[in-house]
Design a protein around this nucleic acid. Structure first.
Lengths: 220, 220
DNA sequence: AAATATTTTTAGACAAACCTAAAAAGAATT
DNA sequence: AATTCTTTTTAGGTTTGTCTAAAAATATTT
């Protein structure tokens, strides 16, 4: 794997994110995303094409090649591992981690990132709930979200509880909810944001907003 | 404090190191240090002069201004804290830390570095024994060296023992050597690299090479 | 399908950081 | 003190990544 400039890496990352939704990405879209001008985007696309990181025909948009996708996943891996480090070890708040990780992600030592991963205990999600690609570039397809944000009737699996107090564990135990439990939100009551939950074949239970805020799930 | 480019930071750091010995630094010296050409150095010196980081008159060498020194200490702080992190937390070897820290040192968030410092327990020396400037830019004047490298008859203070085994502590206890002990090396025997040590008013003792390798001191 | 509007690309400039080759300044030698 | 040698600076050029303004291609509207 060759070495790429900070600028090239930022383009690759932005294309990756945009093409998740769009499939193919346009010059104006990318210019807006990167806060640069369309002319600059065209220049860069020509370069990334000669480096075989994107497929690109003039006037017809672009998308990442397989090489480009691999690179994008490496950069996203670096970014999310640093975010995890900042939040978990340095006690940065949730909102602060992104900006600093934007700089750290361009330090390109593979060994650094793999050792950092190990040091952190191979975390699977960053502090925003986004999945972290592994050393081979494999990434989980679903984002980890708070139970309060899970759409109705969408099956999901509990993967994290942020408050481990015995009081909390008591309620969870009573309701038969634990890491790995498969569940769906059947109803959301606007009055107090409480949720009606269905787990497996059991009868439905109601969960308070306060409890739901501490439960994180990923869609199956 | 403004923001400086990676290149500017590398020049500032190099001038700092060179002027430790020389007082004032010449164009050729700096070009050699940075593996660049003299003409490039002149270009950069003009720029750093307008930014008031160096004192510079054409044909008469240069040295850092107070602003420049402050910046140099910030960069050195970042570098050495990252080196410590890499060695201590990520288990990089001694020889590997420098190259990676060369990249990490240019990430300029002050908050990042101060939180990293705290996370690491405010270490005072990097893995090579060089002192780490504190958050205010204050730095110890002496380098930490292995007892095997201490010049004869130079008073030094024990500040670290790398092997904490009970066997090791037994010898040290018996010889009345502990953290903070003031000592001098009186003689070095070439045959087995053993050392004759004088501590305070006590009679001299002899220390094996094996023991000396685990004792680190700084000159008072 | 022709006219108009939008998007994208080209053409030409600029700043940062580097380079080579030539000129100028300073140091060393006779 | 004049000459030679070395160091440093200037002058002009390159690459990377950006920009503006104009031209070309595509899309949309009538």
């Amino acid at each position: 794997m060759l070495n790429y400039s900070t600028s090239e890496e930022n383009y690759i990352k932005a294309i990756f994110h945009l093409q998740q939704e769009d499939g193919t990405v346009t010059t104006n879209e990318l210019a807006a995303e990167l806060k640069t001008k369309p002319a600059s985007v065209t220049d860069m696309m020509k370069k990334l094409k000669t480096k075989k990181l994107v497929h690109y025909e003039a006037y017809h948009g672009f998308r990442l090649s397989n090489e480009g996708k691999k690179l994008a996943l490496i950069i996203i891996r670096r970014h999310r591992l640093w975010e995890f480090f900042l939040a978990e070890k340095l006690k940065f708040s949730w909102e602060e981690v992104h900006a600093v990780a934007e700089d750290l992600e361009h330090v390109s030592s593979k060994k650094l990132i793999d050792k950092l991963d190990e040091f952190l205990g191979f975390p699977r999600f960053d502090p925003h709930g986004d999945p972290i690609p592994d050393a081979n570039g494999r990434i989980e397809t679903s984002k980890q979200v708070c139970l309060t944000e899970l759409p109705l009737n969408k099956t999901a699996i509990v993967c994290h509880v942020s408050d481990q107090s015995s009081e909390m564990l008591e309620v969870l135990g009573h309701k038969n909810i634990m890491i790995g439990t498969r569940l769906e939100v059947k109803k959301r009551f606007d009055f107090d944001n409480s949720l009606e939950i269905k787990t497996g074949k059991q009868a439905a239970t109601t969960i308070s907003d306060q409890l739901a805020r501490n439960i994180y799930v990923k869609t199956a």
